[in-house]
């Protein structure tokens, strides 16, 4: 989450709770709802690394709140993150291990494994479908994210099919 927060702070300085709200606003339901504690832990680490600077702001009849600023090093780190190519997703290696190893142990046969996995994926796909239905059609960011997830799932399903064709 480090760079997500850095990116938000690059826009404008903010305190922890504001960052949580900004994340939710931008990604909507598509973003796994962030834990406020986790945000503060991340911010502390960023401060220690010198990427972020915390400034106490006094508030009347409330404890001081910390507003975080992006440092020059922080901006540098953010730029590096944006510019470096993002790694592609990796195959579901766990299922692959099951698929290859399970038959050796005689616990399950591959056909059953693949079928079960496919139904599971289709179930996930249905949830994504329903999620897309529920999502506000104007929220393009969220819809794109869902579509991305669907395409990944489709790729997994296609790969399952290949496994079925080749291994059986």
């Amino acid at each position: 989450m480090r760079f997500h927060l850095l990116a938000l702070l690059a826009k404008e300085p903010a305190h922890g709770y504001e960052l949580k709200q900004a994340l939710e606003q931008t990604f909507g339901a598509a973003y796994p709802s962030p834990n406020i504690g986790q945000i503060y832990v991340t911010l502390n680490r960023l401060t220690q690394d010198g990427l972020v600077r915390a400034v106490d702001v006094e508030q009347s009849n409330r404890p001081n709140k910390k507003v975080y600023y992006l440092t020059a090093r922080g901006r540098e780190a953010l730029t590096t993150w944006v510019e470096e190519p993002t790694e592609g997703p990796r195959v579901r290696d766990e299922f692959y291990m099951k698929l290859i190893l399970a038959p050796l142990t005689g616990i399950a046969d591959r056909m059953a494994l693949i079928n079960r996995q496919r139904r599971h994926y289709l179930g996930l796909m249905r949830e994504l479908n329903e999620l897309a239905e529920r999502t506000d059609q104007a929220n393009r960011v969220a819809l794109l994210l869902i579509e991305g997830a669907m395409l990944h799932l489709q790729a997994d399903l296609d790969w399952l099919q290949r496994c079925q064709e080749e291994l059986l």
Binding site: A29, Y31, P32, L124, E127, L128, L131, A142, I146, A149
Partner: peptide
């Protein structure tokens, strides 16, 4: 069907 996106998108 009430789950939020966070549960299906990582």
């Amino acid at each position: 069907a009430t789950g939020t996106a966070g549960e299906v998108i990582d």
